[in-house]
Design a protein around this nucleic acid. Sequence first.
DNA 1: CCATTAAATGACTATTATTCATTTAATGGA
DNA 2: TCCATTAAATGAATAATAGTCATTTAATGG
Lengths: 210, 210
Amino acid sequence: MGTQQRKINEKIKRRKDILEVAKGVFISKGLEAATMEEIANKAELSKGTLYLYFKSKEELYVSLVEEGAQLFHEFFKRATNPVLSATKQTLNLIEAFYSFYTEHRLYYTILTSIQSGSIDREKISDAVYDRIHGMAMELLEYIVNIIRKGITDGEFIDVDPRETALSFWALATGVFAVSDFMQRNELGEVKDKKLLDFASDLMLARLQAV
Amino acid sequence: MGTQQRKINEKIKRRKDILEVAKGVFISKGLEAATMEEIANKAELSKGTLYLYFKSKEELYVSLVEEGAQLFHEFFKRATNPVLSATKQTLNLIEAFYSFYTEHRLYYTILTSIQSGSIDREKISDAVYDRIHGMAMELLEYIVNIIRKGITDGEFIDVDPRETALSFWALATGVFAVSDFMQRNELGEVKDKKLLDFASDLMLARLQAV
DNA sequence: CCATTAAATGACTATTATTCATTTAATGGA
DNA sequence: TCCATTAAATGAATAATAGTCATTTAATGG
């Protein structure tokens, strides 16, 4: 019965179309200022239809991160060639993190808004939330693995890989938040990349076995 | 003309009263779920009156941070006894940062929501925004000064004090964001203090001259 | 051709932030 | 003491949207 399948495909496609339109609107307006009305109009659908595909405006918003996580994965994957030393891989990873931040700002923003809890958990269905969750954990795993390798190879000192990975993550997200803030307020030249390099050099150097 | 002055005092007191009530409401409901209606009722005022004192709900919210910054100052001041070594002062500062985070969560949350830009700049008057601004900079200055002292005393290696201070700030806020996230999602035991200590030890050790 | 079902619609409801014309009440001069 | 003036407060009305749901549309397959 090909009809059945076609229907499913159409639903998937419509969902994708909505996400694509929504992405544009969220980029130009942000979560709060974007309206379901506008998204519906641009998608040539009625408002009600959006709710057949997404539980709420917030769910539509965070659903975008699934595409983002895919990309993030690719960035990290490319950065972590197992042939390279743990140090080199770490540096690549930082580079990748930075590239993702600059090239996919909306996705990055969504990711951090989930992290910071500024989006009400109630407004998102469990299915979507769980998927996002899993993705965040997978991303963290990249870092954990590199550090683990560094320790095994005697390149890094014997630290807790998970704690260290979280520290890196925290440092990177913290740096971007701070430099964003400085930028917004024109508080002098805080070049985000320079700051990230500086900060992660501090941490990395400490990790390296003498 | 004592009347004139009394009026001014009364306005100041009313403003304070509103802030106090609002604090309780924001703590229990958060920014979004709190309503001006509820705050007005609890303050035994009409909704309209709130707008004579604050431009918007957001401005009422961020105005609370002014009290918070005061406290933050005190925490930092106590931590940075100039008699102590730069290393010791840094450790105290981290401790103070952590204490502030745990003991004054609402203030901390407001501070980071300003930092992260999740509050629309448009909804806040310039006067309030500028004040908050200045406070953030003063807090940063504490860290800058300690690092500067560390370098002067030969305790720390020769780094850019401002960049380093920002890195610490970024690390601390990043760590709290991450551990909050882990906590919320029950992703295993990520003790925030332990993580902060671990991460800042990594950075601090790197700073220390051999 | 029709009954059934899935999908889409958009008028309607509900919730709040914000405004503003009106009321209240204090002040100080006549 | 009374009144004009002014500041402060009020709350009904407005505006903007998220989200709902009874109704319509249109495809399907017997």
